[in-house]
Amino acid sequence: MSAWIDGVLVTLILTNLAVLGSSRLNACIRIIALQGVVLGLLPILVGEGAPTIRMTLLTAATMGLKGAVFPWLLLRALRVAGIRREVEPFIGYNWSVLAGLLSLAASVWLGGRLPMPETARSSLVGPVALFMIFCGLFVIVSRRKAITQILGYIIMENGAYAFGVVLLEEIPVLVELGILMDAFVAVFVMGVAIYHIQREFDHVDVDQLDTLKG
């Protein structure tokens, strides 16, 4: 069982690094979709005993939302707003990956020092969750476009979800659903917003929003 958890964790780490190193928005969105699906498996693997019906439903909902609905919305926003496919980072891809590796090392170190409950089946879940939050932040900070900020936000949300898996025996449905709804609304609203910003200014570079101030 722990080999499966390790496999999921490695996939999560690799998808994050792939997002940092990838130059195409489409590819990033698909990688994050994969990340969402793999992440959905985590509670089932970590949980003790056979999965309950509620758990299965929850997992299915998460996977469906993160693996299909979000990517569909984002890809559509990309298409409708006619956004160019380059990621346009402030920090180059190679250095981004390097920064990712450093933050991985930092989160392994930090995760080793955080007090974790006994339920965690794999001591790496905590560090990986931290790492995903760092990566999400990094994507938000270091990329130019509005849509990459949504991507960063989703990665952070995934990290928070992974943390929940470690911390809680079984995630209270309401909390999880609340987070999911937040994310959903965020993605939806920003998709719409991007469309309108695009129509208004012919670009969606957030670093040029400061020209709006009086």
């Binding site: 390790d6 964790l9 490695v10 780490i13 190679n94 990956v97 590796l101 392994v108």
Partner: peptide, 15 residues
């Protein structure tokens, strides 16, 4: 570099 990252991840898993 990817190869190096793979190897480093393997070490992290084993550590």
């Amino acid at each position: 570099t990817v190869a190096g990252v793979f190897a480093a991840l393997a070490i992290i898993l084993l550590r």
